[in-house]
C-alpha cells in the first residue's frame, strides 16, 4: 500500500518536474539523507534520482556494462575507484568548481592511495569495518578478532561474505598487512579463517544488520552504519560496536563522476553541496560516523560510533590487480 503510494507520488513528481535538469545518483541504500537531497533539489531547482546498490561489485558490473553512462555521481569505495580509473570509466574532477574541498581533513586526503591527487574522486565518508555485539546475549568479551575463536558463541556469529574483508581481518589478527602479497602470510590467514568458519553460522553480507538487531545473530562482522540505522530508539545501549584492538580494514567511499555523465556541471554542484560543512555535519550525524570534513565537526550534534583516532590503526583495502587471483583461489578453498 505504502509502496504503491510512493510509486504514484513518484509518477506525479516526475510529471510536475518536467523540464527541470535531472541528476542521477548511484549510491548505497540510505547513504545520503533524504533531507540533503531535497534541499539540493530546492536550491538548484533540479530533480535528483537516487538509485542504490548493495555492493561495489554490483555497481561496478552495471557501470562497466554501460561503459560509464547512465549516472552523474557514484559513491565507490577506494579499491573500486582505482579499478574504475584504470578502466577509463571516470572523468577528471574540476576542482575550481568545488571550493568546499578545502574543508576535508588532510589526514584522510593522505590516505587515499587509490587516487592520491584527487583527480578523479572526492572523499565522502570513511570508516572501519567493525564487530557488532548484541549485549543482551553476550556480556563478556574482549575487543579483539579472537571473539570469532570462541566456541561458546558457535552458531551465533557471522562474518561478511566478502573475501577482502574476511581475509583482511585474519591478516590483521596475525599482524600482517591487509594488502599482503606474501603467500605464506595468506596461507596462515586461510588457516585462521577456516578456524573461524567452525564457529560462525554463515558468511552473510545481506542480512547481518537485521540479524544482530533482532537477536537472530549475536556477534556480526560488518559496517557500523548499516546496523546503527536499524537499532530501535532507546535500545542503543544494548549494542556495542568495536574496532578490534589488532586493527582492521579501513574504507573510504568517494564521490566520482563517470565518463558518460550527462549532467557534469550539476554533478560538481552536488559534490560541492555535500562538502558544505553544515550539510556534511548532518550526514555524519545521520550515519553515526566521524566526519572527514574538519569544519563540519563543529556542527555535529551526536557522538560518532567510533572516533576518528580509532580509524588510524586500520588499513585501507587496495586493489591488487593480477594478484587478486591468489586471493580468489584461497577464498574459494575456504568457502567450498
Amino acid at each position: 500500500m505504502k509502496k504503491s503510494l510512493i510509486l504514484l507520488l513518484t509518477i506525479l513528481l516526475t510529471f510536475s518536474a518536467f523540464g527541470r535538469a535531472t541528476l542521477y545518483i548511484y549510491s548505497w541504500a540510505g547513504y545520503v539523507p533524504e533531507e540533503i537531497i531535497r534541499d539540493f533539489e530546492k536550491k538548484f531547482n533540479c530533480r535528483v534520482i537516487y538509485d542504490t546498490y548493495a555492493s561495489n561489485e554490483e555497481m561496478y558490473a552495471k557501470i562497466k556494462a554501460g561503459k560509464g553512462k547512465g549516472y552523474d555521481v557514484i559513491f565507490p569505495s577506494g579499491d573500486h575507484v582505482s579499478i574504475m580509473i584504470k578502466e577509463g570509466l571516470l572523468q577528471k574532477i574540476d576542482h575550481s568548481k568545488i571550493p568546499n574541498f578545502k574543508y576535508l581533513d588532510k589526514e584522510i586526503l593522505n590516505k587515499t592511495t587509490f587516487d592520491p591527487k584527487h583527480e578523479y574522486s572526492v572523499p565522502y565518508m570513511m570508516g572501519a569495518t567493525v564487530v557488532v555485539v548484541n549485549k543482551k546475549y553476550v556480556k563478556n568479551y574482549e575487543k579483539s578478532w579472537s571473539i570469532f575463536e570462541r566456541k561458546d558463541l558457535k552458531g551465533k556469529m557471522t562474518l561478511l561474505d566478502d573475501m577482502r574483508e574476511v581475509l583482511g581481518a585474519a591478516l590483521k589478527y596475525l599482524g600482517y598487512s591487509v594488502n599482503t602479497r606474501n603467500l605464506k602470510e595468506l596461507e596462515e590467514a586461510k588457516k585462521v579463517v577456516l578456524r573461524w568458519k567452525e564457529n560462525i553460522l554463515k558468511f552473510d553480507s545481506s542480512s547481518y544488520a537485521d540479524g544482530v538487531v533482532t537477536g537472530e545473530y549475536w556477534v556480526v562482522h560488518g559496517y557500523a552504519e548499516d546496523v546503527y540505522q536499524r537499532i530501535p530508539k532507546g535500545e542503543e545501549k544494548n549494542f556495542d560496536f568495536f574496532i578490534p584492538k589488532e586493527g582492521g580494514t579501513l574504507w573510504i567511499d568517494s564521490m566520482v563522476i563517470p565518463k558518460g555523465a550527462a549532467n557534469v556541471d550539476l554533478a560538481h554542484k552536488f559534490i560541492n553541496f555535500i562538502l558544505d560543512p553544515k550539510n556534511a555535519a548532518r550526514i555524519a550525524d545521520y550515519l553515526g560516523l566521524p566526519s572527514p570534513n574538519v569544519e563540519a565537526r563543529k556542527y555535529m550534534k551526536t557522538k560518532p560510533i567510533y572516533s576518528f583516532e580509532d580509524l588510524l590503526k586500520c588499513e585501507l583495502i587496495e586493489d591488487l590487480g593480477e594478484f587478486l587471483e591468489v586471493y580468489n583461489r584461497i577464498w574459494q578453498e575456504i568457502i567450498m
Binding site: 561496478y60 562497466k64 579499478i83 584504470k86 590487480g321 593480477e322
Partner: peptide
C-alpha cells in the same frame, strides 16, 4: 564463455 577473462571484468 569461450573467451579469455580480463582482470577487472570484461
Amino acid at each position: 564463455s569461450f573467451l579469455e577473462p580480463r582482470v577487472h571484468g570484461g
